[in-house]
Design a protein around this nucleic acid. Structure first.
Length: 490
RNA sequence: GCCGCCUUAGCUCAGUUGGUUAGAGCGCUAGAUUGUGGAUCUAGAGGUCCUCGGUUCGAGCCCGAGAGGUGGUACCA
């Protein structure tokens, strides 16, 4: 009988999706706990919403029949409605706030964290599923609300464990550049957008590159040509002067900006908002090195209407192959006064910030040298089938005493069991065979001690017979002996 | 989306002008060591040579298309 062999599926994660193991998860959990504590200390309430939203709630990236998954992961519900996985936490917040507006106490302040999904080309440090952690204030147009968001972001990074010198929040206001462009006679929206994109590339291309992109266009090393914004040279000069207006302190930058902006109504409004943010940041004692006014910050998102924030990490690390590893932006946000209005028709001021948790975790791991590995449990070796009951009794006793413990459940011999415990980074192994049962004792091995000694032992016979870190104690001392070893390891 | 490069064992890679049975290191499993982790030695398992089509007596190698990966660029709510 010949049977068709069913094709075997290839075991692989979808591209852009990653498996995270205990070490990475523990790091994420630490970050989320630390940042949540900061948010709650400012009075923000925790909110969780579902992974899916109806597509029309997600904004202008609606799935259409031809390309339903452009940018988002979308599917059609059994009532034909399009639903899509959320691509950030802000759109669901806007929906929630609009849906519950009448019953919420205003301003509504909430924080949220969870995975978001984007259906786009993955790259290094860029996934199609990743964690964000957001805090937003809905219903306050005060610049002080922005200042508070900034202060929390700075505090959040510190609480997560980033060294102060490794990060900074860069702050700008959309109204400044808008006002400047209006004053310079640039009113066409496509052209404005091109200017924003050009300015955004200052850090990567430098002033020269930005000037080309503001003007006719730019050809890169690969020969590809990017069309420019087509500004006149006078306008280019004023944009460049604006972009380079950054000074050592927030107040000095403000002074310089007021010289450069040139008195448009919108520009003055932006300056006024930044001044009040500056005042509040000063009184909240947010350091000049932690929160910087930087006119070149744009944030691509079109929905921002006022202040914009972006967190940069300056950490430079070296990867496994000696290449330098750069982490991009590790968070961003800003003021979006029109998002809730999409649902309610009423202009509702809102401002918020989003931590890129996954990137932050990667940055932290690089900063402190790959981070700590999670310790394994105490392993009770299964040496004798007839004694399995005793092994489970021992494990129960240890767990009851608060010591994570497992009985080895594989089928391999003792050597493999020791190796198993070693590779799990277990602090101790409990060895009970016929000898111990007969004598009423337990043998406990301190695996860390052996790990430390291993380097200096060359001869296997000596290594084995030396039995480093191994004690045999009366059965009644089991918990005390194991606890001593585990606590020394922690 | 566009341009370049790449795809051979779990991982990193070698593979001669196109010629018999496709290799190495690391890792994995086991033995040397009946009850002891590292090192050493030995053995073993592990392959759709990315896929499909073509050229050829013969293709891992040549040609075409596609997929995936990667770097740059564009976009990025």
């Amino acid at each position: 009988m010949t049977e068709d062999v069913p094709p075997r599926p290839k075991a692989r994660a979808p591209r852009g999706f990653q498996d995270r193991r205990a070490d990475a998860l523990a790091a994420e959990r630490r970050i989320l706990a630390a940042v949540s504590r900061v948010y709650e200390s400012y009075g923000f309430e925790h909110l969780d919403t579902g992974a899916f939203e109806y597509a029309d709630a997600l904004g202008k990236f609606l799935p259409d029949a031809d390309r339903p998954n452009e940018g988002v992961f979308a599917l059609q519900d059994d009532d034909e409605q399009w639903m899509a996985l959320r691509y950030d936490l802000t759109a669901p917040l806007a929906r929630f706030a609009a849906e519950n507006w009448d019953s919420l106490s205003k301003p509504f302040r909430r924080y949220a964290y969870g995975p978001v999904w984007r259906n786009e080309k993955p790259g290094p440090g860029r996934y199609r599923e990743f964690l964000q952690c957001d805090a937003d204030t809905v219903g306050s147009d005060r610049p002080e609300a922005d200042a508070e968001i900034i202060a929390m972001a700075v505090e959040g990074y510190a609480a997560a464990g980033l060294p102060r010198s490794a990060y900074a929040l860069r702050i700008n206001n959309r109204k400044l550049l808008n006002g400047l462009l209006t004053a310079a006679g640039v009113v066409e929206s496509g052209q404005k957008l091109a200017v924003l994109r050009a300015v955004d590339k200052l850090d990567r291309l430098g002033p020269q590159g930005v000037v080309s992109l503001l003007g006719a266009g730019r050809k890169d090393e690969s020969g590809a040509f990017t069309k420019g914004a087509g500004l006149a040279s006078a306008a280019i000069d004023s944009v460049l002067a604006f972009v380079e207006a950054g000074r050592d302190t927030r107040v000095a930058t403000l002074d310089r900006l007021s010289e450069v902006i040139g008195g448009s109504a919108e520009g003055d409004e932006g300056l006024g908002e930044l001044a009040r943010i500056s005042e509040a940041l000063g009184r909240m004692e947010v350091g000049e090195d932690q929160a910087v006014f930087d006119p070149s910050i744009v944030r691509g998102l079109e929905y921002y209407t006022g202040a914009v924030f972006e967190a940069d990490i300056s950490l430079q690390t070296v990867g496994e192959r000696g290449e330098s590893v750069r982490f991009g932006s590790i968070g961003g946000g800003g003021r979006y006064d029109d998002l809730v209005a999409r649902f309610t028709g009423q202009k509702t001021p809102a401002t918020g910030f989003s931590f890129g948790v996954s990137r932050l975790a990667a940055a932290l791991a690089a900063a402190d040298g790959q981070g700590d590995r999670q310790r394994g449990p105490v392993v009770v070796l299964a040496l004798d089938q007839a004694l399995m009951g005793d092994y489970f009794a021992i494990a129960r006793e240890l767990r009851a005493a608060g010591l994570p413990t497992e009985v080895y459940l594989g089928g391999s011999g003792m050597r493999a069991q020791m190796k198993y415990a070693d590779r799990r980074l277990s602090p101790a192994a409990v060895i009970v065979g016929g000898d111990e049962i007969a004598a009423g004792t337990v043998t406990i091995k301190d695996l860390d001690l052996g790990r430390a000694l291993a380097a200096s032992v060359a001869d296997n016979q000596a290594w084995r017979e030396g039995r480093p870190g191994q004690v045999t104690a009366p059965r009644g001392e089991l918990v005390a002996q194991v606890r001593r070893i585990v606590e020394a390891a922690a």
